[in-house]
Amino acid sequence: MLITLDIVILILMILAALWAVMTRSLLRSGIALALTSAILSVLMFKLNAPLAAVFELSVCTGLISVLFISTISLTQPLSYEEIIKHMKDRFRRFRYLPVIVILAGIGLSFVKVRPNLILPPPETETNVRNILWNFRSLDMVGQVIVLLCGVFGVVILFKERVKK
């Protein structure tokens, strides 16, 4: 019962992702992306990783979607004719995708895997803080740098536009 529920959630997530790619409107794409992350975080909750799920939800569904939608709002939407012209063959472009998926599935079913997987223990709150500060301190430094980089990028790339 639990296994099938996981599979249903996975299929839902894939459908949402497909909707994000195939839809005609850019805004709806952004929303579909948020939906995909939300379903993913549900999956994570199910897999007993609540903190990861919370991070995923807040960062991806929240922050990223906000960023995307604000960026999209800055752009000029294409006119209707242009959209039709651009998207009319979208089904034709992805016609090979189902074929590949089915073939891959058949191929994978021949693969017999005996994984020796060591599942790490589920983390609690204090553990997370310990991990982040002590074991992964270098990564924290890295994260700081990435954030700064992002900030700089936005500033550098967009400052002139503002001036103009």
């Binding site: 992964r136 270098l138 990564d139 890295g142 994260q143 740098i145 990435v146 980089c149 992002g150 990028g153």
Partner: peptide, 11 residues
């Protein structure tokens, strides 16, 4: 960490 620093450099 390798992955993170790769990402820093790439971005």
């Amino acid at each position: 960490s390798l992955y993170i620093f790769i990402e820093i450099t790439t971005v």
